[in-house]
Every structure is written in structure tokens, then in C-alpha cells.
Design a protein around this nucleic acid. Structure first.
Lengths: 348, 348
DNA sequence: CTGAAAGCGCTTACAG
DNA sequence: CTGAAAGCGCTTACAG
């Protein structure tokens, strides 16, 4: 690979000038520009990104950290990544995927992240990623509320998790359901905590007893049970419990699928025997299942896009005037046919 | 951020020694190591990744380029990315997502890629990504056959696309279908070319006429029609054509969903009126649709993992002895209930 | 096992 | 508008 000195020599200019032609930070005369470009082409020259980064202190990349076991992203992650990548590219930024398991690998030859900022999806109580970013002095945006104690204040993009759970419970309870099973997200994430609190509030609001309903946390993402979360819980609750659960709220498409399989394996039908509501699923997919799923559209790609915008603002790259430090992304119920009304039994 | 000089001064050693403690490339005495570590902790020191990269010429990142419009990845992409990220992390590598639309953004301030190698998903005839990688002298692996003329020889991971299409056609034709509609991948990709050729061969092999079947290319990924590919084609062919298509082969889950919607909107049923076969779909999802989809398991995450292994080998990082330059990933038919036999009509 | 010094390939004040 | 020189923060022969 040719370097800047080679080009400078061939074009008969200083390397500062070659630098200016490529960075366009200072004007260069037309004929010098042409000479430099010609020499560059001849030598197949392209500025070295790393060397540039070392002095500008900009990598033009943002990190995206997603909790990640040996398993697949869900449809939610998929669309979220889409939103992030697309929006980042609008600012000329690339996205560095940074998964949790890498931490172990990174330790032996620890080094700073080659990124200008980061997006942290799904903060947890003692979030190692946040600790590390903080330690490295890298600005970041969290998607999901950050746990108060960990860091003074960080910009956040979030759904209104409390409201979402209230809406779902209202929706189901209005249809006569009194005993709900909630297949929540993983324990330790702020989103699951917000949801759990809201779940209990919603039940109390309708004068339902928590002990008649069931609440489960998804296993840790590294657990072997992660992929099958929802199946065993559904089987057990329907078969063994006395609570007569009539409606299930599933965290994501995978949990919903697992619950569907459990229900089918028990010889029951959706929604005649049991209702199913999915929180973050893929819209196009939800319409194709049997029956079509009723769920909440969380706008994952919008979550991704907005978190990039917020981060860019923090980095001083976007200059769209004032920008709030905390953004709430709208969500709304999308009706399929997986939730039914229970006749007779319900009371206002 | 503290730098190496600060640590060296505080620990009373040279910066070369500090470097050795962190890189572990040369042994350091125990007590010196401790002194350095103590000083580092005190100063919150972490080696600067960029500075290190400049001299080692290693970024510890690989690029992943996926053709990408303003649209979502499919389940295939999702699982592919998973395989790549996971396998890369085993080698201590990160993954830089590099999407096509960024090219435009990159031009003004062109610079080399800060990556050690790249994975190119779905090469096309005149692949700009390959041209650029080649130009930058960055080793890469393609997933999908590379177009012959473009570059002498590049390591490749691929499905056996010809065989896959033959298997699918054999499967359908054995069930009495004579008029097939093939919703292929995008024109210009080698995968769609391989498939198209195989499609014609398979028909010829069974003495069926190409003109009785229908072949479509997916629109370019930047097209507005990309997301809805399959719907209009299905409507048109079923309603207008005289060919009486009885089976549809869909490139991916999205195309399959679109075809399903079209079939439903026409008041027809799967598989009674028309059969549907999906090439790359998500297994867990395929079981939940109505009816469950019959399709091909391409093992996308294995494709991703193997392409990383191959790349690591090319980079001289993996040393698992000899490694073939071209890998074929197995695929097999997974039966659902979306393909039926046509009685009576078929002949051996 | 450790140190002094050169160098990785750029950008950026500073001077003109 | 252009050049000469210092410097970004590391690693790496080389010498001891």
C-alpha cells in the first residue's frame, strides 16, 4: 500500500497538501488537487484510516452491544440493528458489533474500544458494559432505562414499559381474563423490572390478586433454557397450577412460539382455550401464524434509529439544535386473533 | 485518558516495559509486572487500540458486508450474522457491519477500511464491495460463488445452490407439479444465477417446458418493491396466466409470506390449491405458520461461522492445518405441510 | 529481563 | 493556498 509520502513525492507537493486534498479540511488549488489525485490513482493510494484516527481521535464507528449468548437474535434485535445501521450510515458512521461473550476473550489483551460512542441495549443492574464504557470514557446511549445507582446520568431511548404492560393488562382484563401468566424478559434487566412493577400495579388496579397470576423471568441469556423459555412454564402452569391461567403475555416471538407449541401439545387451542399476547414480535410474521398473533408494536427499528441520533448529538456531530436526553418511542397494540373474550365471567 | 508514558513514569520503568506487560509478547519480571499494573490501575490506564493498530497493522476486526437497502434483514441474515459474530469472538475478533448504502457516504472522505479481513455476503456480477476490498488489499471470503471474471480466486463458503434447486424441483415434480413459479433472489447475484440455471436444468430433466413455468427475480434491494416481492407476482400469475401454476418456490421467508397473503387474498388455500416451498426461512418460525411451511434448511449460522473460520485461516490466525479454499455447507429439506401431491395427473 | 530510540502514517498548528 | 515540523500513543528491533 502506498502511503502519503509516496504520493507527495510523486505529485511534487508536501504531505500536508496531500492530506488536505483527501480530508478537504483546507482548500487546495485546483491544479494541485488534480496532480495529487492523479498521483494517488497511479499509486492506488488511499489514506490509512487508523493513522488518521490516531491523530483526529475519531474512529467513525459506534459500538453496538447486545446481550448475546450462544443463541440467535430475535426479530426485535434484527429490526433494532437495522435501525441503528441505517441511521449511523447517514452520519458516515459504521457499526461495530460488540457482544457480551467477547469480554472474556478481550481480557488477555485488553485495549480501549476503537469507537467514538456506543449504544447499550437492555441495561442490567450491574452492567459490565456500562462499567467498561464509563471506564474508557466513551459516551453512550442506553436503550432501556439505566439502573440508577450505576452511573449518574446517561441519555436513554426507551419504550414506555410501564404503560405498555398496563395497556396489555387492561386489554386482557377487559376481556374477562383474571389469571394471567407473564413470561417476562430476563431478570436483572431494567426493562423486566419496570414491567414487573407495572404488572403488579395493573393487577392491583383491577383488584386482582397477584397470587392468582404467574410471573416468570426469562433465564439468563447464557442459560441452556433460554431458547426454550415459555414452553415448560406454559406446560407446568396449565397442567399443575390451580390458578386457571387464561391468558399468556410473552416477551418476544420466541417465547410466544414456545408457548404456542406448549398449548398445542396440551391439546388446547388459541384463543378458544387460552389467549396469547406477544410484546415484541415481528409484525409481518405475527400475521402469518396460526392464529395471527395479537401483540404490541414496539417499533424496534425506530428505537435503533433514535438511539443513534441521540448518540450523534452527544458526540456533537448532529447539530439539530436542542435534543432531549430521554426519548420515549411510541408503541401500540396490533390486533390479531390470539386473544378472546371470556364470556359471562367478567365484571366491571 | 492516561497514556503509556504516564504509567511508565509512575511505575519507574520504560514504556517498552509497560507495553510488554499488556501485550504479553515478551516476558516481564513478576515485580515489574505488579508495579506496572498498580500504576495502570491508579491512572485508569488502558492501551490505546488505535495506536497499537497503527504499528501492529492489525485492527482485530473483520468487516461484514451485507447488501442492504432501507429494509430489514431477513431471518437468514439474522442467523448468518449470529454465526459470524459468535465465531469471530472466538478468535478475539470484532465485527464491523458494513452496509452498501454507506459507499456513497464514504466517498467524500475516503479512507481504507479499518479491518483485517472481510466477509462478503451474496456477491454480484460487478460487485463494488469486492472491487474496493481488492483495491485496498484486504483479504476476504465470499459467501456465495464469486463471479469468475471479477477476481482471480477468492475463498468461498456456499450452499450447493444447484443441488438445492434440483432437490426442490424433484420434490415438487415427484408430487405431480408441472408448472412451477420460482421467486428467485435478486438478479445479478451469483446465487440467483446458479439457481436459475439449475431450475431450467431440472425442468428439462423432467421433460417439462420452461414456458409452462415462471421465473422471477427479486427487485434490486434498493427498490420500493423489494419488501413486497412475491405478492404481485403471485396474484398476476395465478389470475392471469394460462400456465396453471400449482407450486411456488420462494427465495426467503418474506417472499413466502407475501405469496401466502396473495394466495389468501385470492381465496385459495395452501396446500390444497397451491403448494409453497421456501428456500431460506427461519426454522422455528416455519413451524408456526398456517400451514407449517415446507422448506430448505440452509444452515445460515453455520455458513457464517465457517466463513469466519476460512477467513481466519487466510489471515494466518487459525492454524488448524490445511483448510480447503471452498466450503460447501449442507442443506436439507424440512417438511411442513405446505406442499401437497396432485393426484392422478402425474406421470413417471 | 529491561531501556533508548526509531517509526507506524497520518493531521495540524505555525509560518509564510 | 502551501510547506516544514512536531506529534498522535503505541510497538519493536537493537543493544545490553
Amino acid at each position: 500500500m502506498a502511503k502519503i509520502d509516496d504520493v507527495a513525492r510523486l505529485a511534487g507537493v508536501s504531505k500536508g497538501t496531500v492530506s488536505n486534498v483527501f480530508s478537504q479540511k483546507r482548500p487546495t488549488s485546483k491544479k494541485v488537487t488534480e496532480r495529487v489525485l492523479k498521483a494517488s490513482k497511479e499509486l492506488n493510494y488511499v489514506p490509512n484510516h487508523i493513522a488518521r484516527s490516531l491523530v483526529t481521535k475519531k474512529t467513525m464507528a459506534i459500538g453496538l452491544t447486545i446481550p448475546h449468548g450462544n443463541f440467535f437474535f430475535s426479530a426485535f434485535h434484527n429490526q433494532f440493528i437495522n435501525g441503528v445501521v441505517l441511521e449511523a450510515s447517514r452520519f458516515g458512521y459504521r457499526v461495530l458489533l460488540d457482544m457480551l461473550p467477547m469480554l472474556e476473550v478481550r481480557t488477555p489483551s485488553l485495549a480501549s474500544y476503537p469507537i467514538d460512542g456506543a449504544i447499550v441495549l437492555g441495561p442490567t443492574e450491574e452492567d459490565e458494559r456500562i462499567r467498561l464504557l464509563h471506564f474508557n470514557g466513551i459516551p453512550f446511549v442506553t436503550v432501556g432505562k439505566i439502573f440508577n445507582a450505576q452511573v449518574e446520568e446517561a441519555p436513554t431511548v426507551n419504550n414506555d414499559n410501564a404503560r405498555i404492560v398496563h395497556d396489555i393488562c387492561d386489554y386482557l382484563i377487559a376481556r374477562g381474563h383474571k389469571n394471567l401468566m407473564f413470561l417476562n424478559a430476563s431478570k436483572g434487566t431494567t426493562v423486566s423490572m419496570e414491567r414487573r412493577t407495572a404488572f403488579m400495579e395493573a393487577l392491583a388496579k383491577h383488584r386482582l390478586l397477584m397470587r392468582d397470576s404467574v410471573h416468570h423471568y426469562k433465564p439468563h441469556i447464557q442459560s441452556d433454557h433460554y431458547l426454550h423459555y415459555g414452553y415448560a412454564e406454559t406446560i407446568r402452569v396449565i397442567r399443575e397450577s390451580s390458578e386457571k391461567v387464561t391468558a399468556i403475555i410473552a416477551d418476544d416471538d420466541r417465547a410466544a412460539f414456545n408457548a404456542m407449541n406448549a398449548i398445542k401439545d396440551l391439546g388446547l387451542r388459541i384463543p378458544e382455550d387460552i389467549s396469547l399476547f406477544v410484546i415484541c414480535g415481528d409484525l409481518s410474521m405475527m400475521h402469518q401464524t396460526m392464529p395471527p398473533l395479537t401483540g404490541m408494536d414496539l417499533q424496534p427499528s425506530e428505537l435503533g434509529a433514535q438511539s443513534v441520533k441521540l448518540l450523534m448529538h452527544k458526540l456533537g456531530i448532529s447539530n439539530e439544535g436542542d435534543y432531549p436526553d430521554h426519548l420515549i418511542i411510541e408503541s401500540k397494540i396490533v390486533e390479531g386473533a390470539s386473544c378472546s373474550s371470556i364470556e359471562g365471567e367478567w365484571q366491571g
